[in-house]
Amino acid sequence: MKWLGTWWTTRGKRHQEMPEENLYLIKELRTARMEWENAQCRLDYVIERDQIDYAVFALEASEKRYEMLLRKAKRARLTLLDEKTGKVAKV
């Protein structure tokens, strides 16, 4: 799912009305997603064994962090809305 053209909401409240901790969680989710995608790309370009080990470790760590933040967003009842389609995807 593309992150541009989407915004997070909670119980029908727009981004501006959210508590500060939810806004921080949204920011962290975006950062974690970007780190995860970067780790996936990095794995494609490694050559040496040490680089491979590090790339795999970084990928697993970033994936775990992203999953943890998604669970936290789900507990906070945050929802992702795609502005182009208008479809809501619960986290």
Rank of each mutant, 00 (worst) to 15 (best):
W3L: 08
W7V: 11
W7E: 11
W8T: 01
W8Y: 07
T10D: 05
G12P: 01
E17R: 05
E21K: 13
L23K: 14
L23H: 08
L23N: 13
Y24Q: 09
E28W: 03
L29E: 01
R30I: 09
R33P: 00
E35Q: 11
E35L: 09
W36P: 01
N38Y: 08
A39C: 07
C41Q: 15
R42A: 08
L43F: 14
D44P: 02
Y45G: 12
Y45T: 12
Y45C: 10
I47C: 09
E48T: 15
E48P: 14
R49G: 06
I52C: 10
F57K: 02
L59W: 02
E60F: 02
E60K: 05
E63D: 07
K64Y: 10
R65K: 13
R65C: 00
E67L: 11
L70C: 14
R71V: 03
R71F: 04
A73M: 01
A73R: 00
R75F: 15
R77I: 03
R77Q: 07
R77W: 03
R77D: 05
L78G: 00
T79C: 02
L80V: 06
L80F: 09
D82M: 00
D82W: 01
K84Y: 14
K84Q: 13
K84G: 11
V88G: 04
V88A: 13
V91S: 13
